[in-house]
Amino acid sequence: MKLLVVEDEKELRRTITDFFKNLGELVISAKDKFEAEDKLLSHQFDAIILDITLPDGSGIDILPIITKTQDNTGVLILSAKNSLDDKIKGLDLGADDYLTKPFHLAELNSRINALVRRKIFKGEKIIQFNEININLSENQVYIKEQLLSLTKKEFTLLLYFVNNKNRVLTKESIAEHLWGDNIDFIENYDFIYTHIKNLRKKILLIGGEDYLKTIHGIGYKYTNL
């Protein structure tokens, strides 16, 4: 996957770039509108992470150039302003998703994955992790050809784990992924434990391997090791 990260803040740009590079993706970064336009003219990207506030203009203004230069790409807008106007305008001009700062890298990864799957690999709707097959068009999970019946929340949870395998996922980031803005007013995340416990139980029940590791009381990691 080839990614373009347009972000003026150096540290953010570096962290996002490193994160995706570690996942084995090809990442090119741009620090402003000018550089982004330059990169867009010479490369074809699968996905673009676009910050709205750039030193030489708004990221929104880049959207028409993306449409002109890129054949098929997913665009995710990053914004510090949780403003509905920006969101609507961005989505109108061809952006596919919108994420407000600050965000979790795992969340960004999940969104980019979903976006690329939707836009680029239109046919491929199955994600595989060892013996686990997640069918996205059916919203079903199969373990060794056997159907694993999950609730909506458990399905989202498993998908989040598989998308961010080998990574420590904090309780905060899991809760935010599953409940979104609804947990803005909740400060205690222990309730996610029930969902994780149930998911684990269901997988073990039909003979699946338990890849979920608890990490020092801060979160979980989905890993082979």
């Binding site: 803040e9 540290e11 953010l12 962290t15 996002i16 490193d18 994160f19 510090a80 700062k101 600050p102 965000f103 979790h104 890298l105 795992a106 990574r167 420590v168 904090t170 980031s173 020092h216 009381g217 801060i218 979160g219």
Partner: peptide, 28 residues
């Protein structure tokens, strides 16, 4: 928002590495 993003993301990254139990708690 921006410095908070940097802080949160960097910490998230640091938490990925192995640390002593004591440091884990502090970082968390």
């Amino acid at each position: 928002q921006t410095p908070l993003s940097i802080l949160s993301m960097t910490l998230d990254e640091v938490l990925q590495d192995e640390h002593s139990e004591k440091n884990y708690k502090k970082l968390y």
